[in-house]
């Protein structure tokens, strides 16, 4: 699974035109040494910092949200790692891809 690509999550069955999708992958390390993190939790926070949703990452470290238009924060929690915050912009009809490195 080393160096797994971002965007590996299939969008089959998702009506992308009607959704503001935020998705991506959580990894430890960078470049060819990047390893997917399957036991992480990704939280979606709104512009006021309020929790909106949370998902555990898949076996390949992937996650997905169906958000609304605007700016969001992804907060990632994982064993033996400090929380990581990432800003992301979502827009209906598009897919925002985010690679989160612990």
């Amino acid at each position: 699974m080393c160096g797994a690509k971002v965007g590996g999550l299939s969008l089959d069955g998702v009506n992308v035109a009607k959704e503001a999708v935020i998705q991506g992958q959580v990894v430890r390390g960078t470049g060819d040494d990047a390893t997917p993190v399957a036991s992480a939790y990704v939280r979606l926070l709104d512009q006021s910092g309020e929790f909106t949703a949370e998902v555990p990452t898949s076996a390949t470290g992937h996650f997905r949200f169906f958000a609304g238009d605007g700016q969001w924060t992804l907060r990632t929690l994982a064993p033996k790692a400090d929380p990581v915050d990432r800003l992301v912009q979502a827009q209906t009809g598009s897919v925002a891809e985010v690679l989160i490195t612990l």
């Binding site: 998702v14 009506n15 009607k18 959704e19 979606l44 709104d46 006021s48 309020e50 929790f51 909106t52 949703a53 949370e54 998902v55 997905r64 949200f65 169906f66 958000a67 609304g68």
Partner: peptide
Amino acid sequence: RSPDEYAGRLLAPAHLPQE
């Protein structure tokens, strides 16, 4: 629910499709 669901800007938690 989350503020966006309460206000009517989202219809479901954001890990679920909104339709």
